[in-house]
Nucleic acid binder design. Structure first.
Length: 420
RNA sequence: GGAGGGGUGGCAGAGUGGUCGAAUGCACUGGUCUUGAAAACCAGCGUACCGCAGGGUACCGGGGGUUCGAAUCCCUCCCCCUCCGCCA
């Protein structure tokens, strides 16, 4: 979330940002925030003054009691009660304003970076880079589910029987191909990032920290008996690792990578676009996360984007890089790239990675700061993350792009060492 | 799952109702001394909020309560440790 001090100082900028994101009535929202903030601080200030008086009086009572002057003490004690009532009421006013304020703050998204293009729909995302050629075939290319079925790589039907739609079994080479990709991705990532094997379930506080809660609640599975959420992405445990901690400036940047399965409910999805591996309830992903000094986060965004692209290049898959427009940008992000591979059998682009800068938006929620070496108060870090990469659509693209006549396929050379 | 013990500042560890935001030690920072370093000595050293400032308020796992006054008493939740049981 944004800091109130920031909103107080830049109301106009916030309104502008809300407009860019296509959120109506931004000005009213900002006014409401400023009003609650004012009420909160007024009550707080007044309560402090009263509390100060009460504390002083209590100390006097203590002195009198010790001296055995009980009658004098009783007079002071009697005088305290109205003060106590006032303090209590002011405290309640402050608390309720603070509550309203923090609820309002959760509805204000992060501010799009100046380099983010205007626009409200998918069509306004800007393709800033394209790699490789869209292939043409001398036969009709098949979608991956046909190829997978023919070769017994994936069993969607039994997955549906045993767990449900969106929970496929990967079999034999299909299973091994997953293991190969995970290892290839991790081996590449660990050249720069610390490898982490995180918890696959997180608690409510963690889900709040990275912003899955409250607005994306329906996206996660929920183990209500234990109050836990199966991770929708490794971003959640990795970014929360340092929650409520103060780091040394020299600790930065923190660089983590992790392979995890990811679980998403994907409620309401249906139709041809979710067929095969296009959209699943459980999928595998290698995630990269960084916590950086505020001055470096936009440079780091570019390096992380490059790290993800290196993998696609090595796999020799045609892909494009989109710079998300203001309206399509995630709620918590200031700038976001999506990488999409070409699905030769479906003739469409499939998102396999999203790389984002959250600046201090998540860090404020999680209270992750660093102590500047030059002295001064602890400052919020910036957080970033990216997929490097999400597996199922990469598998789909590999099968479709590398298919040959009669439903055969090959796999890129980089994977050979991983496929004994 | 059962029984018991415990959560205090970066760490260790005092403190069981009245100037306790909290002794002491270690670590850390600055200074003195030294050719330099170590040692010794002196000083500093949590976070958040309010205030132009002097200063103030809150925080001793979280939340609630008793009291004029709570780290200290009560309730509740969370977490950790030990023993037993179960278990990949």
């Amino acid at each position: 979330m944004l800091g109130v001090e920031f909103i107080r100082a830049n109301p106009r900028e916030i309104c502008q940002a809300l407009t860019r994101r296509g959120i109506p009535a931004g000005a009213d929202l900002v006014d409401h925030v400023l009003e609650q903030d004012r009420v909160h601080r007024e009550a707080l200030t007044l309560r402090q003054v009263k509390q100060q008086a009460a504390n002083a009086e209590s100390r006097n009572i203590g002195v009198l009691m010790r001296e055995g002057k009980h009658e004098a003490a009783k007079v002071l004690i009697a005088r305290q009660s109205s003060l106590k009532t006032e303090i209590k009421e002011l405290g309640e006013t402050a608390a309720s304003a603070e509550q309203t304020l923090s609820e309002l703050l959760l509805t204000i998204p992060n501010i799009p970076h100046e380099s983010v293009p205007d626009g409200l729909s998918e069509a306004d995302n800007v393709e800033v880079y394209r790699h490789g050629e869209i292939p043409s075939f001398e036969f009709t290319p098949l979608p991956h589910w046909e190829i997978a079925r023919q070769h017994g790589l994936i069993d969607f039907e039994r997955g549906a029987k045993v767990a449900g739609a969106g929970f496929p079994f990967y079999m034999d080479v299909g299973a091994r191909l997953h293991r190969a990709l995970i290892n290839f991705f991790l081996d590449t990532a660990t050249r720069q990032y610390r490898e982490v094997r995180p918890p696959l379930f997180v608690n409510e506080a963690s889900a709040h920290g990275t912003g899955q809660l409250p607005d994306k609640e329906g996206q996660m599975y929920h183990v209500s008996l234990d109050g836990l959420y199966p991770v929708p992405t490794a971003e959640v445990p990795l970014t929360n690792y340092f929650r409520d901690e103060i780091l040394s400036e020299s600790d930065l940047p923190i660089k983590f990578c992790a392979y995890t399965p990811c679980w998403r409910r994907e409620a309401g999805s249906y139709g041809a676009h979710v067929r095969g591996l296009n959209r699943l309830h459980q999928f595998d992903k290698v995630e990269i996360v960084q916590l950086t000094h505020p001055e470096h986060s936009y440079d780091v965004l570019e390096t992380m984007r490059r790290d993800a692209e290196t993998l696609l290049k090595a796999l020799n898959l045609p892909y494009r890089r989109l710079l998300m427009c203001a309206g399509e940008l995630g709620f918590n992000q200031t700038k976001q790239y999506d990488l999409e591979v070409w699905s030769a059998g479906q003739e469409r682009w499939l998102e396999v990675s999203s790389i984002s800068n959250f600046t201090n938006y998540q860090a404020r929620r999680m209270n992750i700061r660093f102590r500047p070496e030059s002295g001064g108060k602890p400052q919020l870090v910036h957080t970033l993350n990216g997929s490097a990469l999400a597996l199922p659509r990469v598998v789909a693209a590999l099968l479709e792009y590398n298919q040959t006549e009669n439903c055969s396929y090959e796999l890129p050379e980089v994977l050979t060492p991983y496929l004994p």
